[in-house]
Amino acid sequence: MNAALYALTVVIWGSTWLAIKGQLGEVHPTASVAYRFALAAAVLLAWALVRGLPLRYPARVHGQFALMGALMFSTNFVCFYFAEQHLTTGLVSIIFAMSLLVNMAFARLFFRRTIARRVLVGGAVGLLGIGTVFWPEFAHFSLSSGTGQGILLSVCGTLVFCLGNVVSGKVQAAGVPVIQSTGYSMAYGALLTAPFALALGDGAAFETTLTYTGSLLYLALFGSVIGFGAYLSLLGRIGGERAAYATVLFPVVALALSTVFEDFHWTARDGAGVLLILIGNAVVLTNPALLARLTGARAEEPDDRAADADSVVRNSASD
């Protein structure tokens, strides 16, 4: 059962990046984001209502839901939708995969958690990998180029998402269950995005094509509801640290799909960069005792490991 949940999480989250491509057409990206999370919120809150879960919270908590929604289910996805107009889905997923490290940096900044040495090493390796993949673009970076805009939007989306994780951590620490907080946050994200869709949208209000409708349903139901539910179930079964390996593997799925459906052409530099990114993330997530046995080094203190694991768990309310 654990293997099935793990595979479901990796495949769904790895495939959502390609599904976003199906949303890019006549409908403005802000409208597509609003549709996606309005539908996902309706499903989650209806599920909570059917199960009899508490849905009444004070205004202060709703303010936190709104902030979480603005960061995690609105602004960041608008950035990613626009980014995919300029970059292949696999490349966008590579940049987002570094949210694992950004979350840990934010945990240090906002929660004063210690950053373990392996995190610093893994982060350096992962950043080297991103630099390897995007070196030609970085060497001739220009916001006037589509690639430059795509990189900047992807980085902004990742940073905003990680700020949302900080808010999510505070909400969970206050004892609000994940299903309710996510459902309400998605609803607020859709509500906050809708005015921009009305003001900026200059195309069709909706596409009835199979590509657009199908990708919207997939993103809302599978990417935002089922994928998240599978990951939560996995957390309860095997713990956050091992479950978080999904964030290492889903870029592989995204790149494989991009190769097949977007004609992404691999170079030796791309392969080396992706390998470095995967190694860096694996080092961050690997059990310190295992690393000590492999390298002969002294294992890091348990507190460091616990702090990192807590930070990793908050990384995963993504696509």
Rank of each mutant, 00 (worst) to 15 (best):
A4K: 06
L5R: 13
L5I: 01
W13L: 01
G14E: 00
L18P: 08
K21Q: 10
G22W: 09
Q23W: 09
G25S: 05
H28I: 00
T30L: 01
V33H: 07
V33E: 00
V33M: 05
A41T: 04
V43D: 00
V43G: 02
G52K: 05
L53C: 08
P58W: 03
A59D: 00
R60F: 05
H62R: 12
H62C: 01
H62T: 08
A66W: 10
L67H: 07
L67F: 07
F73I: 04
F73D: 03
T75A: 15
C79E: 09
F82D: 00
A83H: 11
T88R: 11
T88M: 13
T88A: 14
T89E: 03
G90D: 00
V92C: 02
M98H: 12
S99L: 10
S99D: 07
V102M: 06
N103Q: 10
N103D: 01
A105P: 00
F106V: 00
F110A: 05
F111D: 08
R112E: 02
T114D: 12
T114E: 13
A116Q: 05
V121K: 08
G123H: 12
G126P: 08
L128I: 09
I130T: 09
I130C: 06
G131E: 01
F134A: 02
W135R: 14
H140K: 11
S144V: 09
G146A: 04
T147M: 10
G148C: 10
S154V: 11
S154C: 00
C156M: 15
G157Y: 07
L159F: 14
L159G: 11
V160K: 10
L163W: 13
N165F: 08
S168C: 10
S168Q: 14
A173G: 09
V176S: 06
V176D: 04
M186F: 05
A190V: 01
L192K: 13
L192M: 13
P195I: 00
F196I: 01
G203Q: 07
F206V: 06
E207W: 12
T208A: 15
T209S: 15
T211A: 13
L216Q: 10
Y218H: 08
L221A: 03
L221K: 08
G227V: 01
F228H: 14
F228N: 14
F228L: 15
Y231C: 04
L234R: 11
R237V: 06
I238N: 13
A244V: 12
V248C: 05
L249I: 08
A256Q: 02
L257F: 03
L257W: 02
S258L: 11
V260I: 13
E262H: 10
E262M: 08
E262L: 05
H265C: 09
W266I: 05
A268H: 11
D270N: 15
D270E: 09
G271N: 01
A272K: 01
L276A: 15
L276N: 05
I279F: 04
I279M: 12
N281A: 13
A282V: 06
A282I: 09
T286G: 02
L291H: 04
A292F: 07
T295F: 00
G296S: 07
A297Y: 00
A297R: 13
E301T: 11
D304V: 15
R305A: 12
A306M: 12
A307S: 15
D308R: 15
D310W: 14
V312N: 14
R314F: 14
N315Q: 10
N315Y: 03
S316M: 13
S318C: 15
